[in-house]
Amino acid sequence: MRRALVFLLVLIAACGSDVSQSSGALPPIDGAGIRALIAESDQPLVINIWASWCGPCRSEAPLLNAAHEEFGRQVRFVGIDTQDSQADAAAFINEFGLGGLEHFFDQAGSVRAELGGFGVPVTYFVDATGNVTVHAGIIDERALVLGIDEITGG
């Protein structure tokens, strides 16, 4: 019986996630900070406003990860965690393996106030000239790839 329990525990542990834990707090950002980031970027940007408590963000997180893997060399992917806690943000990043994206922390929601849009999530597509297109609400695969295709010139 004890052996069976030990085997079961080892099995459960083996089935657990091996995603490495994110370390450190996310750096803060505000409206002026996002404008500076856009101005200094030499690549088109996809900026995603997310929060760990946001259900639709859970749905689109794997999409953003897949898009980053496919287009990460042409486009800079930036995540902005808003109205959240640093601990919950770190747990969300670990859960969905979003460590490859750049993330910032915007407790007050000032990035959204600066770039436009409402609610969470919001995705911004910024082309090479700094023009910003807003996609409010959850984004699907087609809209995400379309937005990326538009900012990279088709």
Binding site: G55, R58, S59, L63, D140
Partner: peptide, 16 residues
Amino acid sequence: TNPISHPGDFIVIRGG
């Protein structure tokens, strides 16, 4: 996403 632990996510239909 585990549909049992996150049943509410089911209605986020544009999620796919």
